[in-house]
Every structure is written in C-alpha cells, then in structure tokens.
Design a protein around this nucleic acid. Structure first.
Lengths: 241, 241
DNA sequence: GTAATAGTGTCTATGAGACAATATCCG
DNA sequence: CGGATATTGTCTCATAGACACTATTAC
C-alpha cells in the first residue's frame, strides 16, 4: 500500500479554546472578533497555530489562554474536547485544530486581546441560535463544548470551577441551572450536594450583601468524581428559560 | 506576537484505532506487530498516516480499519477518542495522532494484515499489565479507550455493538461483565435491560446449543442513549477477575 | 426423574422529588 | 415585628440489589 517513495502529507496544527463562564447567572463563551482574513469581522474562538514544531499541544492551549484571554493557568480547568480537521474547514490549507474546553470563574468585565480586534463574553443562547456570524466550524465546536460541560456537571465536580475559591450552595445551584438550562429545587439541591462525599467542604460562615439569612460558604472538595452523580432531569416543558 | 514572516510549523497526521471485541467472555484489543522501525517488533495499534492532504480524518480511520483489520464499516461503532501529539512520541518527527475507538462483534479468528507483520487479538489485562512491549504511547491510548468504553456502556447502547445482530440477555450481560471487570446478578440485569426503554427489542425465540432452557433472542433497539443509565457498581473486592 | 440455564416475583434500602416548616439575617 | 433568603425535615415514589422461586429445554 505504501510505496517506497511515498511521503505522508503534512497539516497545520491549531488549538481552539471554548472558554465558558457564568455572568448574571447565564452561560457565556469567550469570542473574539477576527481582525484578519479569513472570516475577517466574524466571531471566533480564541486560538491559533502551534508556535514552533516542538510545542506541546496543551502548552499551546495554555499559551493562547494567556495571550488571547489573559487568563492564567492557575486553578483553571482545561480539557481536550476533540479534533476538528475536515478538509476545507479553513481556506488557508489543511488545518487541523485541537479544541480544548476551559471553565473560568466569573471575571472582571471585558478582556482586550492582543492580536484579537475585540474580545467579549457572548451569551451561549445567542451563539447557538445562529444569529451571530461564527468563523470556521466554531459553532459546532462550541456546541460540543457546551454538551461536554453539561455531561461533566453530572459526574464530576466541574461546577466548582465556575465559582471562585469560596461559594454558597446557591452559587453552585446557579451553575447547574445555567449550564443545564433548567431550574432545580433549592432544598433538594442543598441536601444532594451536602451528602455527596467530598464534593464541597465548609469554608467558614458567610458575610452578606443585601437581605436575608447569610449563607454558609464552601470550597471545592477533594473528589473530582461524583458518586452518586448529580442527576440531570429529562428536559421538561416547565423549565426555566 | 506573530511576526510578518512567521509561518506556522507543520506536523504529520496519523490515525490510530483501538478496536475492542469480546473473545471467550474477555475483552480483547487488536494489535499488530510492527514490521518496520521505529519500534520494530513491538506491538502497536492499527493505524497510519493520512494518505493524502485532502483525506478526511474519519475516512482515514475507516480505511485503516479495512486495510489493517479487514473490518468493514458496516454497523461498526467508531468514535473519536482524542489526540495524542506529545513532541517526541515518534522519533520520525512531529507526529500527531487522532485515536478512534471501534467496537466489533466477535469475529472469525485471526486477521492477517496487509502491511502489518502480524495481527492478533490480545487480552486487555495482558496489554495493560505492562508485560507486552507496546510501541509509542499506545498503552496510554488503549487505557483511555477502555475507560471510554466503560463509561459509554453506562449511558449508551454501545454494549450491543459487541454482539452480533441478535443476542441473548446473557450475551449482553457478558459484555458488561467483561468490560467492567465485575460480575452482575443475572436476575437484576435481566429486569433492568428489559425495562430500559428502546435498549433491546425481541427478535424471535431462540435455538439452543447444549443444555438448559433456550434463551430468547433480542436485537439492538432504536435508542442510543440509555435513560435511566446502567449503573456501574463501585469497584468491589468480591469482583470477578 | 436430574442437570442446567432462562426468566419471574418479592422484599428492602436508598435516593430523588415535592413541599412544609424553621432559622437567621436586615430594617 | 415583616420581608427575604438559608437550611432542615418529612413524606412518597421509583429503582437498585439481594435472593427465592418457577419455567423450559436435554438427557
């Protein structure tokens, strides 16, 4: 099958980052406006080519995270999402992109990128609805990323990655409600997360802002795998949204 | 950051296939003995480079499946597992490999590959135990593939992909026991799969081989997502193996 | 009949879901 | 005190797990 003088084709390798966070109890993804062709003016995921032939792929992801999103690696969940390499997905040639999913706690408002014309958090519904002009196959990548996050919330402690170092049970519930797009009963949620071994640990009693009883604070526990898992109800017509 | 004359580095793109099947109620993976350097003589996953610059990655996976394993695409589960691209994983240069997970029903015995010196099913325990000489980072890829299969058995009808067109409940239970490496109660298993909507459908009553009551036959149902999921018990000391 | 495997029924413990009631803050 | 949010408790229903029992074949 392979001939003596046959040489394998080469491809350009890129990384793309699906960075999710919560803003005003809604799921957002970080997108930048492309300043150059192709797809100039369209919105795109932060990302870029490998810098040199020896660069680690995950290192490139971290680099882009820092360069384009100004997010530091510190305590930031980063996970490989998949490979997107359809021929023709990029007019510049055969570009194969490794997508990563990153979860960030709420951050100080807008982020100005370096080689990005503009960076902004976009509500996930607007992105997936098809109203926005997305570059390349990035809508598909975002769809996959959101679905991955939804599944991971069930079986891992990923939800705490959306929160700061300490958080209340209600904060955590907001994460589940925003990512899953449904509403949950606070009492049952409270009981559930409390009894899930190693999920969250008490972190002192709370201060309070406005009104009502002050909530207790928690921090992420040692367990990354939730057993038993959080159960995601089958999508109901009486959902939030 | 990027200079005017900077050009991105290129990489070689390969696919690797983790092909799992059941033989004598034990999980096996298809490995070939490498006939050429590097790692000549070591065992490796079926796979290879893209054939040309326009080839679809998934198409390349299917091609290798056919070329090296003589398995046809027909009704064969094939899913992207991840990207393995550490610099230095291949002495020939920067090779980035996209791994796919394939599940095959029991097949006619040994498979002679085309450009592979030898192809054989290896029991998964022997492969993961470290006794065998595995090429590249293929032990890690296999580990990831097995773990993926374990998880997918919980939430999808993947188990039926290990079986032929029709199968008994016991056949299906064998799949779960082999992949999960535990033993399950036949009565509870029977009840569980029966009541899981759309998982399996009756396919006539059965013929029989040796002794005992003949089993009913089933075929895969329409649902790919199992709800409620099959629950994998926490690993117990009283397990099979 | 016996041996062997297939399939059904029953009981119990656990957890999810609905929802009432109590606690603790602010003013 | 009343308003608001946090936390606990109780009830019911579904289901996983343990396990006794019945059914259907070959001999």
């Amino acid at each position: 099958m392979t001939e003596d003088h046959w040489v394998p084709p080469v491809v350009l390798l890129a990384v793309d980052l699906v960075i999710l966070t919560l803003r005003q109890s809604r799921l957002h993804v970080l997108l930048i406006e492309r300043g150059i062709e192709p797809h100039k003016g369209a919105l795109a995921l932060p990302g870029g080519f490998l810098q040199h032939a020896e660069e680690d792929i995950i290192a490139a992801a971290h680099r882009e995270l820092s360069e384009e999103a100004h997010l530091d690696v510190e305590s930031l969940s980063l996970e490989q999402l998949g490979v997107y390499g359809d021929p023709g997905r990029d007019p510049r040639g055969r570009v194969v992109s490794v997508a990563y999913l990153a979860i960030a706690p709420r951050l100080p408002e807008p982020i100005a990128g370096t080689d990005a014309a503009d960076a902004a958090w976009q509500p996930i519904e607007r992105v997936l609805s098809g109203d926005l002009d997305l570059a390349f196959d990035h809508r598909r990548i975002i769809t996959d990323g959101v679905e991955r996050a939804r599944v991971k919330l069930e079986h891992s402690s990923l939800a705490t990655a959306f929160c700061g170092p300490t958080f209340t049970i209600t904060d955590l519930q907001d994460v589940y409600e925003a990512v899953w797009g449904i509403s949950l009963d606070p009492r049952n949620f409270y009981r559930k997360v409390q009894k899930t071994e190693g999920f969250i640990l008490p972190a002192g009693t709370a201060r309070k802002a406005t009104t009502g009883r002050p909530a207790r604070l928690f921090r992420a526990g040692p367990c990354t795998v939730l057993y038993p898992p959080m159960v995601r109800p089958a999508a109901s017509p009486s959902a939030k949204e």
